[in-house]
Amino acid sequence: MATIRVEALSKKFGSEAALSNVSLTVESGEMVALIGASGSGKSTLIRHMAGLLAADPKSPSRVTVDDRVIQEGGRLVRNAKSMRRRVGVIFQQYNLVGRLSVMTNVLVGVLGRIPAWRGTLGLFNAQERHVALAALERVGIRHTAHRAASTLSGGQQQRAAIARALVQQADVILADEPIASLDPASARRIMETLRTINRDDGITIVVSLHQVEYARHYCARTIALAGGKVAYDGPSSALTNAFLTELYGDAAEELILPDAPVTDRAPAPAGAALANA
């Protein structure tokens, strides 16, 4: 069963095309990396999959999650709210509410599936609080539950955001550059956490990344965007630096770390041969 299906997605901002005719399928339980230079359309694609943006009006586009339509023909479905509940989103800037406690930020994850009046008044029951604390425990920051979110470090805030997505009980987590604002140690920790919930909970994960090293290390499959189009979709191991340079030209520089961390994956000779040919 296909978890996320994107068909013929096009989006213009003014006269500039951010995405043109993007189609892709992410299977249930996959962890897929989405890479591309700045302005290649990664964030725009993720926001469309999350039901936060609608495609160009009257385009033949369609986005489904678990065969339920989120948007079609450039319009979000009427119950987009209940679809958003099924898709957890993690943002580059964490998007927590800084003045609220970490606990409240995580409890927000249940809003989509409890009666509206109870959520609006903040009347969370003991079981919901238990779920939120368990999620915080899982990402390793249970001790911060009572602190204001703004007092946490970037890495801790991002882990709180992951806990919020876990509490949401989403089938899919879309992470939009989750590690772009973090130091390497926090970045690895976030990627490890995402990999753990992907493996243990079977949550499908699409993670957009600026640096291809992380894609090679954590994701079996990579989708590369260039100029709003899918430029590559296949095994991450085939993405050699030479191939990226071919794909992005000078823009490839920002995708490749000068001193790339050692990966535990063997470089794929086939991809290398293809790129070098």
């Binding site: 936060l52 709210k81 958003r84 957890g88 994850g109 809003l111 989509g112 509206a116 959520g119 949401q168």
Partner: peptide
Amino acid sequence: RPQEGIRATGANVVQEVVY
């Protein structure tokens, strides 16, 4: 951005404002 974070959880409009 925080408001978008709330919206992404499937909260309704009033909850977006409240949280």
